[in-house]
Design a protein around this nucleic acid. Structure first.
Lengths: 174, 174
DNA sequence: ACCGCCATTGGACCAAAGGACAATACCGGG
DNA sequence: CCCGGTATTGTCCTTTGGTCCAATGGCGGT
């Protein structure tokens, strides 16, 4: 694991090339002050293994380090979306099987199934959109967005949009 | 990759044991409707490879699948914190070196360094705490929390607490 | 036809979040 | 000693976020 600081005056990719030359086999994770999709892309094609916000939590960094240690890449959610096209192939190559186990009796819980609209709204909110923005991109009133959001909160037992975001991103609010 | 539905009436661990018996070499990721740390722990000791919210984004799930494919575990931020004690050893075993590269000239950017207090507040906020809660757990006024939060927003160019959360968790808001 | 679920929207209302402008106090360095 | 950065708190005000009660229209199943 290497910690270094890029010289702002020189192209990052050049410095990386230089680094790879002098050190040979290294795995680089770039921590950016102001993450940018395009920068990330060029860095990845320059051989970088991970790219995330410079202010990420220690826990996040450990997690990232773990992933890269295991031979993976860490690209973050948004960039992930931009890369889906090129990676979908690799992902869909995974063998998938479905095993219904038991009569799906359990169910029990408080019926947490979200409707299509609710899922749509929930995802938007979880990615940082305001009610107004969600309203615009869904072509509905902000009032209606609130209705859906509220219903999502109930079903998922989230107390506010931030907790919802944490949940939908594979984490759990404290 | 296996998709199945646990029978609510039977202990999850029992069903897992059964599953492992019938399928042998499988990697299980549990998607919980209401994630719970203790449940997660018992599931992990039962051999589960991943544990996250059942409503996680498709992108998140792909990411998780990737990590597990690479031989890793996916435990999520909060549980991670609970496990730090037991995993710290493994993590600190990673070789670490520091290479100052260049005269740290760049710097340039708009001075993004957060103060200790700001980091403390930012982390709390990013984990889902309200201003009031942060105030309580820091022993300061809610007003002061707002001051710090505001300053963090400026330095990190986050437009609101949700975006801040997304940033601090290794992602990037859309 | 009636019922339940979904999507939609309205209005009112209250709490939380953020921004604007400003003040006080501590601390370390030139 | 004065200056700058940090920490703290204040008030005022605007914008968002969330909840409650209520209503309308569509759709599929009994």
């Amino acid at each position: 694991m290497v910690w270094l600081r890029l010289d702002g005056a020189q192209a990052a990719t050049d410095q990386l090339a230089q680094l790879y030359q002098s050190l040979g086999e290294v795995r680089v994770i770039v921590l950016a002050d102001q993450p940018d999709g395009d920068e990330a892309l060029s860095l990845f094609s320059a051989g970088v293994r991970g790219y995330c916000n410079a202010h990420a939590t220690a826990a996040s960094l450990r997690q990232i380090a773990g992933v890269i240690e295991a031979g993976g890449l860490w690209i973050g959610e948004s960039l992930m979306k931009r890369l889906v096209v090129s990676t979908r192939a690799a992902i869909s190559r995974l063998p998938v099987a479905r095993l219904p186990l038991g009569p799906v009796s359990g169910e029990g819980s408080p019926m947490s199934a979200l409707t299509k609209r609710e899922v749509e709204v929930a995802r938007a909110v979880a990615s940082g959109a305001s009610n107004k923005e969600v309203a615009r991109q869904c072509g509905i009133t902000e009032r209606t967005v609130k209705a859906h959001v509220g219903s999502v909160f109930q079903k998922l037992k989230a107390r506010d949009r931030l907790h919802l975001a944490l949940m939908l991103n594979g984490q759990r609010p404290s």
